[in-house]
Amino acid sequence: MSNYEKWVAFCTILIKEVRRYLRIWPQTLLPPAITMTLYFVIFGTLIGSRIGEMGGFTYMQFVVPGLIMMSVVTNSYANLVSSFFGAKYGHSIEELLVSPTPGYVILAGFVTGSCSRGMLVALIVTTLSLMFAELQVQHLWLTLGIVLLTSILFSLFGFINAVFANNFDDISIIPTFVLTPLIYLGGVFYSLELLPDFWAGVSRLNPLVYVVNGFRYGVLGVSDVDVRFAFGMIFLFTVVAGTYSLHLLNTGKRLRQ
């Protein structure tokens, strides 16, 4: 395939993915908007007013970056896992596997599609959050870099989950039993400074801590962890997950007999 043909194939996958989640927007774009609005109302306005300041900001301002990242993580992951597993389950993935499209183009198409949903949801949630809190982005490029890299990383995790999943139960196990606890314990609602030293140390093993704090630093300028280290870790995880995903596609593991 020439580079132009690869570009066409990439755009085709991307457009198909975007069309898919826009077609079912009540399932893909509306729920995070409703859920996050509830978070803002309950944790920010009702409970937050009693908590007071955290890290030098109102509680509402403190939780907003974490909630935005929570949306990005869950939506990027959910988009790729459901889309790719759906294609695998219904055998429509064969349309791509029989074509000359290289594995890295297929992966890039699916990941970019998922990222676009993650970013779109981030935009929706950020817009909603402005009705509840005043935000001034401190480091724009770092913020965008973290959110983009995080979206890519969790799209890749979703892809790996989809490849290994045998049924629809398998695609909900990781989000329910791994992703959600990690998000909730990743410092979305509290600062690690509030934890005893031991639990603060344990929390630092949670990759979501770096995602949330990296983004919080970009938006508010405060973080519980070293931001360069956080960015480096997210980048490293992305490279490892990307390489492994490509290996799965090229060898056809769980996709070809």
């Binding site: 349309e95 074509s99 000359p100 499209t101």
Partner: peptide
């Protein structure tokens, strides 16, 4: 193929055009 292997929720026209895209057709 022997079994239907397209996305049942896609439009007929889109299924054919998309396949062309996978082969790099403008």
């Amino acid at each position: 193929p022997q079994e239907f292997n397209f996305n049942m929720f896609e439009r007929v026209f889109d299924i054919v055009v998309t396949q062309g895209g996978y082969y790099g057709l403008p």
